[in-house]
Design a protein around this nucleic acid. Structure first.
Lengths: 233, 233
DNA sequence: AGTCCCAAAAAGTCAGACTTATAAGTCACA
DNA sequence: TGTGACTTATAAGTCTGACTTTTTGGGACT
């Protein structure tokens, strides 16, 4: 997924992107296109294309007679899926995971409320199916399969909200959920309470109960926040 | 702001970006780099850089022997500030404005709650100052000055939340508020109730009352939704 | 100290030649 | 007639080298 061979400039980005987002080049650092091109053993044209992409992500700024300067973190396009992936793969993974989980806690309840109003019959069916899949794999160390259904569930909710901005967060949520299973403390079976909440949420959406869908999702996200010790006791 | 002379490729983007986001080239359309280069009277290298940027925004996909194909809207990086600006400037401005306002209604209340917990003394002061500025310009057709304080107010709240993802939405909110004042039905003075809510929100944050801050912001965003006739009665 | 001017530096631009992947068409064979 | 292997045309991808433009830092002169 991340190492799709989009050509040489893609390969350069796969190295340079993570390096910058990891803070390897601190803000204000100056890179020179020619040097980078030599270092990566590509032509200047290829290097320039890579720099343009980094520039469009607001990771760097290119100025004449100065070079390519790394911008402060606060200016980065932190919603760019590529940037998110790079950061999740790097050193400030925990920090990024927290930011995203807080974001989820804001978005998903509202999205669920809207989904209850706008979901098609097909989407309701998908939701129920996913919930059942979660139940079926909630015991006996079937985390992999559980995860697949969990991701699909949240993706459907976000899509069914009918809001394009919410829908596009599906990938982000997928990254967070996947990351939690793979790298965090999730060796045991998932919390039974969480599974139940998903089942009830599917019900609420099917019954067009927006308020209940929103509240149930809020409880789900509270659980996610607690897992990361974000919540004040 | 939008026509920053970042070189020739920037000029190309200023034309091509809006055209694509406006749906001028429907999804699946195939462009050819050479033709575009001729059309814009730039070299292939410059054109290629522009295409790379569009590609990083997931607006287009470049494939050998095929050309540069426009991707379906559902795959665009709709959080990219540049994409947002292009869409706000184009035909589906109303649609984009609605999406963003719904997004605000999800994010800002949570952000305000966090701001109440994390805002520094300085940020509290700024907030109060902005609220006073809003009050001072809420009557007598001073929409311009009112807007400045309104934008600054929301920006401080988002920043004070301490969450980088929220903070980066400051620009988006600014665009929405500005757009509302400039192009929508806002010839009269702002709603006094809204002004009061902002003043009370500044208070709530100063007094570290997270729950109240969240609820007040929810009311503010409900007002924004009503303005666009999004809310079900 | 202040101002003007120059030269170096690095990005920006261009043109042209060459390479590579691949969609699509062609043809032979079953 | 259908299928698989082969060929070809095409458009992106890559590289190189020369040239232009902007900017900054410093030096000379006041």
């Amino acid at each position: 997924m991340s190492t799709r061979g989009r050509g040489l400039h893609g390969h350069v980005l796969d190295t340079l992107g993570p390096a910058i987002t990891a803070g390897e080049y601190p803000p204000g650092s100056v890179l020179r296109t020619d040097e980078l091109a030599q270092h990566f053993e590509v032509s200047r044209s290829v290097m320039r294309e890579a720099v343009r992409v980094l520039e469009s992500m607001h990771l760097v700024e290119s100025r004449r007679r100065v070079g390519v300067t790394v911008r402060p973190k606060a200016e980065w396009n932190v919603y760019d899926p590529q940037v998110i992936r790079w950061r999740l793969a790097g050193a400030d993974r925990p920090h990024q995971l927290r930011s995203l989980t807080v974001l989820r806690s804001a978005i998903e309840p509202v999205a669920a409320g809207l989904a209850a109003q706008h979901a098609t019959a097909e989407q309701c069916a998908e939701l129920t199916e996913c919930a059942l899949g979660m139940v079926a794999n909630s015991r006996g160390h079937r985390l992999e399969k559980y995860l697949v259904h969990d991701v699909a569930f949240h993706r459907v909710v976000l899509t069914a909200s009918g809001n394009e901005m919410f829908a596009r967060l599906g990938d982000v949520v997928a990254e967070v959920l996947t990351g939690r299973t793979q790298h965090e403390v999730m060796f045991e079976d998932p919390d039974p309470a969480a599974v139940t909440l998903h089942v009830r949420l599917a019900e609420a959406v099917r019954e067009r109960d927006a308020a209940r869908a929103e509240e149930l999702t809020r409880q789900i996200t509270v659980g996610a926040l607690e897992e990361l010790d974000i919540l004040a006791p």
